[in-house]
């Protein structure tokens, strides 16, 4: 009888305590003190205006708050020479280029440097990749089947790889829509069915030329049917050449987001290449093709 009463008590306790936080408890862990450094992320794209830059600092995982660095000296060097300087604009919390000198896809070496009071100077160096050579772009309706089993359209083209370089690529597709005299671009998501592609953050793919170095790679991008592409639509294909660090960063960002808070994955960190600091400096060049279906 005592056992019965005890178990009834236990059952009552069980069901009365299954509240929102019944399985969660805050714990205090002995986390080592982190030495704060400058942190940034900067993408330098050829044939584009230079992006504005956000400069912050790294902080302890618990107990600290984020802080924007407003007094930094931000400079970009090209082949060892000062190329561009940046100034802080209060209204945006960003640093903007003073001269807006065009960036060319000419293989130049860029060095990015940030100095600020009370912090060590941070820097990173990247080469600007050459633009990719693309041929034989073809759009085929209902020509493939995606990983969900749906029939899809297919955008096919040949990528001519430079045998003298290790190359890394990414593709983007847009549909150009004109409505009521307005023109806008709609990102087209696509699927792939080749093991050459690797997942990058935000449903992009990146790929290395390791398996086709110096040869022609036949890219086949599967356009989901829900976009309802029709004859006469105007599409834009962007083929990007990525620096190696850019390629690693985009892959690591994808695994980072997939593993964050995911007990089914090994935890991971985002790839960094900033000397004396944290974050990423990366480069890419791109070639754009507009075509009508």
């Amino acid at each position: 009888m005592k056992v019965l009463i005890y178990n009834l008590f236990v059952i009552a306790l069980l069901f009365s305590s299954c509240g929102e936080d019944a399985f969660t408890s805050v714990v205090e862990l002995d986390i080592p003190e982190h030495q704060s450094t400058l942190a940034t992320s900067f993408l330098l794209s050829a044939d584009e205006e230079i992006d504005s830059i956000f400069i912050a600092k790294s902080i302890n995982i618990v107990g600290d708050t984020n802080e924007i660095i407003e007094n930094a000296e931000v400079r970009l060097f090209k082949n060892g020479n000062l190329f561009e300087e940046f100034e802080f604009i209060d209204s945006s919390n960003h640093y903007f280029p003073k001269n807006n000198i065009p960036i060319l896809a000419d293989g130049s070496e860029y060095r990015f440097e940030v100095s600020a009071l009370n912090f060590a100077t941070i820097s990173a160096t990247q080469n600007m990749p050459m633009i990719a050579t693309v041929e034989d772009i073809d759009y085929r309706f209902d020509a493939a089947i995606d990983s969900y089993g749906d029939i899809t359209d297919e955008l096919v083209f040949n990528l001519i790889d430079d045998p003298n370089e290790e190359n890394y690529y990414a593709f983007e597709i847009y549909r150009i829509i004109e409505e009521n005299d307005l023109v806008f671009e709609d990102r087209i998501y696509f699927d792939v069915n080749s093991l050459v592609y690797e997942d990058a953050a935000f449903d992009y793919y990146v790929l290395s030329d390791a398996s086709f170095n110096g040869n022609t790679f036949n890219a086949r991008l599967l356009i989901y049917n829900w976009f309802e592409a029709q004859e006469g639509d105007t599409f834009k294909l962007v083929v990007k050449s990525l620096s190696y660090d850019n390629y690693l960063f985009q892959k690591s960002l994808d695994t980072y987001y997939n593993s964050s808070g995911n007990p089914f994955a090994e935890p991971s960190s985002v790839y960094e290449n900033i000397e004396n600091g944290h974050g990423i400096f990366r480069t890419e060049s791109q070639v754009v093709f507009e075509f009508q279906l």
Partner: peptide, 17 residues
């Protein structure tokens, strides 16, 4: 476990309108 964090601008998206 993570021991430090920093903000990052991670995705640039351009649209023409």
């Amino acid at each position: 476990l993570p021991i430090y964090s920093y903000p990052i601008a991670y995705d640039y998206f351009r649209s023409e309108f």
